[in-house]
Design a protein around this nucleic acid. Structure first.
Length: 461
RNA sequence: GCUCGGUUGGUGUAGCCCGGCCAAUCAUGCGGGCCUUUCGAGCCUGCGACACGGGUUCAAAUCCCGUACCGAGCACCA
């Protein structure tokens, strides 16, 4: 199996489908998996030098490890060798038609004048291409298929073209004659002895084109599956590498890990496990129709993975301060409601607490401060009532979260919808960056920074 | 315009190849209830789909034809 990403930027969620599905097949059938960067376009889909490692990191985060990693831009000589061989086999010719002109002929099913060139001329011209003696647009090497093939997409397709823009990788910056994906990946898949290809529906005709190549060389084409496009709900930002890249450059997004961007990096920041992403992606299967991925299915998978061992904590948004009268000195809610053995956390109450505005009961009504006890809203304070828990069970007194007014951890929660400020309980200081906690009645969050200004990323409810 | 592919509940998916076991699976979502000192978890329960029209057949989600809608390719992008 192979993953063949174009390293033109860090990954979004759609790209994760490759390792998720292909890597899972590999694991299930004890296969072999190559990661090959198909970086043969230094211009239009120009590789981003940082993306190579970012993609490898993303694959690792998702829980997979390629058995080998190669870059197409290291392998130009191999492609040239095969092009020479193909020319010898009569399977390719150099063509200097302007693109528009060739397209017209092709659509009419008519061969262009260059199709009949002899092998010597073609070889000579191809070597001149390799030597960089042509300018972009002047000439291409075409694969001779069937100019009258009923599917115009398959007729005599281009295999190599000239590009003046140097490749961003220094090792490949000297090349001017670059193969087109259909040629490059076709050759590479065979040389790497790939038996199964899984990729996007946009490459359906690509497989048909490559079969012509395989026929010339007498090779057997791998099993191939094409899947449709994935769309996400819950995001305003389109899932497209170039769109996200553009928004970052314009300053609309704060980098690839901005929670508003549907990127792998952003989900990682939010403390969502790669495994959860994989399981949601696996659920999509490999149908050729387009599919909508509900973020809720990733959240559901993640919740199942982390709920049991994630500690609980209080985080009060936009806290309203209330003096507490006649109550105990501290509250002690459990660390995890389903695991008594993990004990309780102690939250001191020094005369006043902060609660969320919506949780302040009408005057005269009671509310249960979780892990502390029942208070009644009188005048402008919370008066401890000493009621037993029966007040909650029998009399429907609401249970709310709270933090002490004095000793808190000011915290900014970064969500998909922007920043939320508030205060977390003092015990949050005991955690470390990268820890995930569940803020009760708010949701799961991953701690990013824990110094003067504490920052956490919201994962999901 | 030419070519190729697709269409099962809100979403995803199983079933389709090899017609009957499908009054259509599972998950997620949403609603209700129970439980719970979280709006989390758990338990119970409800909602909701074979795109449409013909044909073949004793029998069609499944096979054939047509229509509609969606998508992909026809790049010197990947």
């Amino acid at each position: 199996m192979r993953l063949a990403p174009n390293p033109n930027g860090p990954w979004h969620l759609g790209n994760a489908r490759m390792p998720a599905v292909i890597g899972t097949y590999k694991q299930r059938y004890d296969g072999w998996m190559l990661c090959r960067f198909d970086d043969t376009d230094p211009e239009t889909k120009r590789p981003d030098p940082d993306a190579y490692d970012a993609i490898l990191d993303a694959i690792e985060y998702l829980g997979f490890e390629p058995d080998a990693v190669i870059r197409a831009s290291d392998r130009l000589e191999t492609y040239y060798e095969h092009a020479r061989e193909l020319i010898e086999l009569g399977g390719a010719y150099t063509c200097s038609c302007p693109a528009a002109e060739f397209s017209e002929l092709k659509n009419a099913g008519k061969p262009c004048p260059h199709r009949g060139k002899d092998i010597e001329t073609v070889t000579e011209e191809f070597e001149a291409m390799v030597a960089g003696e042509f300018d972009p647009g002047d000439i291409v090497l075409r694969v001779r298929t069937d100019i009258e093939h009923k599917n115009p997409a398959l007729r005599d397709w281009a295999a190599f073209r000239m590009i003046d823009t140097p490749h961003p990788r220094e090792e490949a910056a000297g090349y001017r004659c670059w193969p087109i994906l259909d040629f490059q990946s076709g050759i590479d898949d065979h040389l790497a002895e790939i038996t199964h290809i899984i990729r996007g529906i946009d490459l359906q005709d690509s497989a048909r084109r490559q079969r012509f190549l395989y026929e010339y060389f007498g090779w057997e084409y791998p099993e191939v599956v094409h899947w449709g496009h994935v769309q996400l709900d819950a995001y305003d930002v389109k899932m497209s590498t170039s769109t996200i890249k553009g928004l970052i450059e314009e300053g609309e997004l704060d980098g690839w890990a901005d929670p508003r961007a549907p990127t792998i990096a952003s989900l990682q920041k939010r403390g969502i496990r790669g495994e959860a992403i994989v399981s949601a992606l696996i659920e999509l299967g490999t149908s050729t129709s387009d599919v909508d991925l509900a973020m809720s299915s990733i959240y559901a998978a993640n919740r199942e993975l982390i709920d049991d061992d994630t500690d609980r904590a209080f985080f009060v948004r936009d806290g309203v301060e209330k003096t507490v009268l006649n109550g105990p000195d501290a509250g002690s809610p459990p660390v995890h409601p389903d695991h008594e053995e993990r004990g309780t956390r102690t939250i001191p109450v020094d005369g006043a607490v902060l609660v969320e505005p919506a949780d302040v009961p009408p005057n005269g009504q009671r509310v249960w401060l979780k892990g502390y006890g029942c208070v009644r809203h009188t005048r402008d304070a919370f008066e401890y009532t000493g009621d037993s828990i029966e007040a909650v069970r029998e009399e429907n007194v609401p249970v709310v979260h709270w933090v002490p007014a004095d000793e808190t951890v000011p915290l900014t929660l970064r969500t998909m919808d922007g920043l939320v400020t508030g205060h977390a309980e003092p015990g949050l200081r005991e955690y470390s960056p990268d820890d995930v906690v569940q803020f009760e009645r708010v949701g799961f969050a991953r701690i990013e920074e824990l110094n003067d200004h504490t920052l956490a990323y919201f994962a999901h409810p």
